[in-house]
Amino acid sequence: MSVIISVENLVKVYGNEFPAVKNLNLNINKGEIIALLGPNGAGKTTLISTICGLASITSGTIKVNNLDVIKDYRKTREIIGLVPQELALEPFEKVMNAVRFSRRLFGKKDDNVYLDKLLTKLQLFEKKNNIIKSLSGGMKRRVMIAKALSHNPQILFLDEPTAGVDVELRKDMWNIIKELKAEGVTIILTTHYIEEAEMIADRIGIINKGELLLVEEKNKLIKRMSVKTLKIKLKKTLTQIPKKLNKYNLKLIDEGNSFHYFYNTSKEKTGITSLLYDMNEIGINLFDIQTEETSLEEIFVKIIKD
């Protein structure tokens, strides 16, 4: 995959305050969905703002399609669409006019056929002559996306796109994002909802206190960091773990009716077979077995905590 955005040694300091972004390096591949996770004030929005031109860069370089975002700002901005976190819309404007305005700002000729298609895709076509003020919060969020896509960008930044929206709309948004990816659009999204990143992202970046702690393919990250739990329900209650099983670090639960065994699937041996063998040898019969996997949320919390 070719790199479409390259951030090198980016530093952003607001006034004389503590740096919001510290020496950050990141490459974003063409056509991928990358989710940037981090707590409030981590520097996610600042990173987006520097790439899109909303905030000046203290030091470092950002390239989009191999072009510098400061020197070649016209060319780099032409291919970027941005949906900010806040619902920022002219309340008294009609939907179609607002979307057309955005397209014109990017120097593009009017194209009502494209805009009609876009509004249809975002389920806004029937509202195109409505005043924005009259729309629901979810519809306004769609208008924001329509404005960002009005000039047919190759890269789309979504800053907390589903913050404060209901579950149904959130799922609709995910579908829209997946459709855009299928059309070849590179998507960078920041989110608080780990579930969102887990559902739609190809790669995960975790930012905290202005530093990029890691960037990794979602599935690899989950596999690498994931600790699985084997819950073994016993036929007979145990008062303590037998000595022979001490090496497995088992945790007795449910008043001695079950125990937990923790293992990692990324290792060559999980130890499950030998555990079951040893249990059989000392005459412990099992009644039921369950496995549980660490969620991305738990991985995220662990990384931030560490």
Partner: peptide, 17 residues
């Protein structure tokens, strides 16, 4: 007004000098 309602982001992120 764009500053007040937050729509200046559009001007700043557009290819406009």
């Amino acid at each position: 007004f764009p500053k007040f309602i937050g729509t200046t982001y559009e001007l700043l992120s557009a290819p406009l000098s």
